[in-house]
């Protein structure tokens, strides 16, 4: 059974003149990481809001079709139930920090506190996550005095502690430097190994190429293409439609145009190196 299922879903924000999602049908399976790409205003964040239930529970507007989470219609889920089922990590880590807690440790524990989890269990689970994400040096700090990268790691911790099966992650690295980006992707990789179901919106297609099981391309509120990272991210025509593909894929295309051997278009650095070295040998 599909874990998350969208059946002919259309959605229009209140007062908007266009549909943010337009007749979207797709099934997400349990335990996979879905990379969601596309030009801005293509419907990526709306999909995130929908799967987490912010639409229709928070955003009004017009929703047509069906969104099923574990077989149950999103309209029938209570919002508090969804909040224990699905974790959401916002694009802007500044939106995630509550602002009401004075230490990082309390901030991470806030979700469990809200659920009324037993104090000993709450502390134990928080300590576990702190260790797991190596946040020991930050726990006594004020969450408002952290750098962007630190905030994003704390935001992840405050969601991971809830132990959701489904995680919706919307552009987690857009404000981060390259080394903090790498740290965040290490966390995402660990979550993937735990067989979490992850919907990840990300402009950095090099990272989607490394980590995603499936890639969905959103365009004008619709799923324009979907498939394996190798199939989707090697397609040069996406560039003409305003969607990036990895620079190594473009390299592959340019080498082919110059009649240099290239069995398949690489999408990761290691694939590119392998192809280049193999190409050299084949010419031999």
């Amino acid at each position: 059974m599909s874990y998350i299922e969208l059946k002919q879903v259309s959605y229009q924000y209140p007062l908007a003149s266009e549909w943010a999602l337009n007749d979207v049908t797709y099934s997400f399976e349990k335990g996979k990481l879905y990379g969601i790409i596309g030009a801005n205003r293509g419907g990526k964040t709306t999909l995130c809001n929908l799967v987490r239930g912010f639409i229709p529970h928070f955003y009004q507007g017009e929703l047509m079709g069906q969104v099923l989470i574990e077989g149950k219609d999103i309209r029938e889920w209570e919002n508090h139930q969804l909040s224990t089922e699905i974790g959401y990590i916002f694009q802007n880590p500044f939106s995630q920090i509550s602002g009401v807690k004075e230490t990082v440790f309390e901030e991470i524990a806030l979700g469990l506190e809200n659920l009324g989890v037993d104090k000993d269990e709450m502390i134990e689970r928080t300590i576990q996550v702190v260790k797991w994400l190596k946040l020991e040096d930050l726990i006594k700090k004020n969450p408002n005095n952290l750098s962007g990268g630190q905030r994003q790691r704390v935001a992840f911790a405050s969601i991971i502690v809830m132990n959701h099966d489904i995680l919706v992650i919307d552009e987690p690295t857009s404000q981060l430097d390259p080394s903090s980006t790498a740290e965040v992707f290490e966390i995402i990789h660990m979550l993937k190994e735990q067989k979490k179901t992850i919907l990840l919106v990300e402009h950095k297609v090099e990272l989607i190429a490394e980590y995603a099981d499936e890639v969905l391309v959103f365009e004008k509120g619709q799923i324009a293409s979907y498939g394996s990272p190798a199939d989707i991210l090697s397609r040069k025509d996406l560039m003409e439609r305003g969607i990036s593909i990895p620079s190594v894929a473009l390299l592959g295309h340019e080498m082919r145009e110059k009649n240099m051997a290239m069995d398949s278009i690489p999408i990761t650095k290691s694939q590119a190196l392998e192809q280049i070295l193999k190409g050299g040998k084949n010419d031999d």
Partner: peptide, 15 residues
């Protein structure tokens, strides 16, 4: 500076 060079640079270096 804890930066990361573009992938093309990384490949050129490794080759």
């Amino acid at each position: 500076a804890r930066i990361k060079e573009p992938q093309i640079g990384e490949i050129a270096k490794e080759l």
